[in-house]
Amino acid sequence: MPEASSTKLASTADFDRRDLDWYIDKVVQLIVFFAGISAIIFIIGIFIFITMEGLGFLFEDFTFKEFFLSPFWEPSDEDAPEYGILALIAGTASVTGLAMIVAIPFSLGAAIYIGEFATGKVRETLKVLVELLAAIPSVVWGFIGLSIMNPLIIDLFDVPVGLNVLNAGIILGLMAAPIMTSIAEDALKAVPDRYREAAEALGATRWQVIFKTVLPAAKNGLLGAVLLGVGRGFGETMAVLMATGHAVNIPGSLFDPVRALTATIAAELGETAVGSPHYQALFTIGIFLFIITFLINLTADLIVRGIRKG
């Protein structure tokens, strides 16, 4: 076929031709690139914004000792306003801690069931349901805390108010459980099946396979799941605002009402004068929350990716 080869030779001339597809490709690459790095831009932007808003307080009224160690949050006291967030930290921490006590057994159990026991339709249905559960708006959870848990706790434990650490902790635990289940299940699924096969062939029972082989192999992912739950607990606002009782208080028991860092910002920001010390103090709480949740999520992410060993 001499003709064919000669036309091929002739066509080498326009190797450097750029048609429309070439330009579309470049443009799309550029758009996708900016969409991709937008997350970084937003994170930095938000951090800069809340830092600027809180900066005035940080440099003028802020004293480390008062801010972190005083349990008195009295920003609207006209004579001597106090900006101590110790009680708020205690509120957030106690509610999140209880939430994890509720959520860890639930989510770990659910993940083990979905990942290791359920098969076929049951498994698929459960996975979809868990994801639906994660999508319930937090105000709905808050509503459940307010109108169902509140009277229930009053009845069951004979306490005057049912909006307290117990209520919020349970609500928050149930809220965090679905996402933790999802991630824990991913972690279990990532354990190669040959480990299970190996253990089973050595005579391990189903429980021994899970407890001695699968869970240890998945421990990083499981830890990541818990940390993401903690991050969720710290950051959650609406449900916590509705279910804690919103009283500045270092809790002495499960039945004490508390107030969370996030809820404080949500409840007070609308009523402060822009630029006032109170306003800036709220933004300083925002900076604090931002740093904490950022660190928790970053750690969780690193652990899930297995960058950390141990």
Partner: peptide, 9 residues
Amino acid sequence: FQRPNPLPI
């Protein structure tokens, strides 16, 4: 087994 499957311990 066909593929060596020591446990990750």
